[in-house]
Write a protein that binds this DNA or RNA. Structure first.
Lengths: 341, 341
DNA sequence: GACCTCAGCGCAAACGTTTGTCCATAATCT
DNA sequence: AGATTATGGACAAACGTTTGCGCTGAGGTC
């Protein structure tokens, strides 16, 4: 416990103040407090360390960064943390980073290109050692600018051509959902397609549509509604789908939150989720299984993606060769489709 | 666009390098780039600013902090961001802070007292101007230590006696839930009580139990199960409640996520949520309304709590007098209780 | 025309670290 | 015993900003 046994120094406790107390030079204190105290006697190290602890010393991050040029910080950009999928990835990132001696600082860009730029500026001016981007979009041209800064980065969750990324195989995920519905006999289906500028939205939708097309049941464009990635967007998109002249028997939603919105719309249309309208989500958040009607969902290993993105970034920082990874999705079938015999 | 018209300077662009280009002193550049450029000619300001922009200058946060002692950063501590309620609060915090010219840095403490301390150390060594704590616990003694650091802070979501906090009136929220169930004729109910060391858990539960007791139906201890705040914890607690010799007709869950876990357990026990087992949640996340069985929930203004906590903290920073706030909760009745006639 | 004012800018110190270099003392070797 | 080598520590510079102060010269006042 940093008790104030040494009331003489009231101001902020710095290396200099510790040095004054210990009667040594500030550089000695610095070395004594460093991880490998070279060139300082063992008992001096001990004496200084306990003194520092007693005084409640905390290394000043700003000064440290200024001097060394390194922050041991990695910046993370996500669309929004209220999306549990992204929050889970960030959780994986933060845990792994912490374990490896790094800190993270996260910013929400709301899928807004302007905000993306300003958040990036912020992180760069904080001199992050590297970046993990969870919000990459095909309609933004941040990448060339980013590469000019020389700050290493990896993408997570969403891909972009030519960039290192850690994602799930979203094409395959879309296919899995489609095959599942096809096996259950669905021929006419709707899609809540998410944001086409995000690779998640685009690829999950494409994998899904391609599979239905190959099976002989191409999905007309009016059955595919773009949306955001949230409950409200799913709800609104589903309302449009349910108003179509020929109602589909199943709806594939781009993620679990939009799927819940779909469920709400289906319910309010007087239909039973599962028996009268099959619903498939994506990500398999832990709440999917517990919903009153268990939600069939394509599981993607979110925490693992977070971990992997940190490891990849750190490999880059150490000059290692790295490659993109696409993790394998798995379909978890539940009542929201299985009760649709 | 920061085009590299000036290839001469390849290194990082600093005030000094701009000064060299412009043929002025570094201090002039500093002033020209500051918000109110005093003592610099208007045309010099203009010239330097465009030059800085062309070179892609970004103020070095570390040096700025080191010199000024201020960071315009506020640190935020939350149990975990995968909890949508906390993520929403953080979203409110971050948006408001950004709007007011502050940045936020968040850390997850997982309701772990050890982690709390180390995260706090981290934020303090980063010299945050103030702190917003969303993870305060009655079983941790961080407060005295924190007060010694002189860094201003406010609590959000959870209260602690004697500290400035922005919360909802959780006692009242618990009462609202109880009154609602009493009006519907429920006499024997279970409670998924959350973490008793968090004021949210303790007070929602207390308000709920007190109201039932006053109505003549005290809730026995074995019908009140402590839990965490997540889906899995809700599920496990509900499983225990459902195994009780005399099964209750309703379950009050400490938040919406645990309520979803309760719904899963109820469903798997072969009961219909709503008609056979009423369920009440807390927070009214936007997904509550859209669930296959709409979840009755006590709405708490999460985003507003976030905003208010920032304003309060900034008021403290400006030396203003501030007071704790308890926002009013509202019960949103839906199918998970209304279909339980 | 001498004096003052003040705008515009340069000078230098300081913030708290880290780290290469150097010096004194003590220990080791021949 | 003298020369050499570790060893423990001091010294000082540097990282990029900000900011109080001082200097110069142009314009205004009497």
């Amino acid at each position: 416990m940093p008790v104030s046994k040494h009331p003489s120094l009231t101001g902020p406790v710095t290396l200099a103040s510790i040095a004054a107390h210990a009667g040594v030079h500030v550089s000695t204190v610095s070395r004594a407090l460093s991880a490998q105290p070279d060139g300082v006697g063992p008992e001096t190290v001990e004496r200084i360390r306990t003194l520092a602890h007693e005084l409640g010393y905390r290394r000043d991050a700003a000064a440290h960064t200024l001097r060394t040029g390194r922050t041991r910080m990695i910046g993370v950009l996500v669309p929004r943390l209220t999306d549990v999928a992204l929050a889970t990835i960030y959780d994986g990132i933060d845990q792994t980073a912490t374990r490896l001696g790094y800190n993270t600082v996260v910013a929400n860009t709301r899928d807004d290109v302007e905000l993306q730029r300003s958040c990036l500026d912020l992180l760069l001016s904080r001199r992050v050692d590297g970046l993990i981007l969870g919000d990459s979009r095909t309609d933004s041209n941040l990448m060339p600018e980013l590469q000019r800064t020389q700050v290493p980065f990896v993408l997570v969750m969403r891909r972009l051509p030519g960039q290192i990324s850690i994602t799930t195989d979203d094409l395959e995920g879309g296919r899995l959902a489609a095959k599942h519905l096809l096996e259950l006999g669905h021929k006419r289906v709707g899609v809540v397609a998410g944001d086409p500028s995000a690779s998640t939205g685009a690829e999950r939708t494409r994998g899904f549509r391609d599979t239905f097309a190959k099976a002989g049941f191409p999905i007309p464009d009016e059955y595919v509604i773009d949306s955001d990635f949230h409950v409200g967007g799913g709800r609104r998109a589903a309302e449009r789908i349910l108003r179509l002249p020929v109602r589909p028997s199943a709806i594939f939603a781009i993620n679990d939150f939009t799927a819940i919105g779909v469920m709400g719309a289906v319910r309010d249309a007087g239909l039973q989720v599962g028996s009268e309208m099959a619903v498939v989500g994506y990500n398999d958040l832990d709440l999917a299984e517990q919903l009153p009607v268990g939600l069939t969902s394509v599981r993607s290993p979110l925490t693992e993606m977070g971990e992997l993105s940190v490891h990849t970034l750190l490999d880059i920082l150490q000059g290692k060769e790295v490659r993109s990874r696409r993790l394998r999705p798995v379909l978890m079938a539940r009542a929201s489709t299985l009760n649709s015999r």
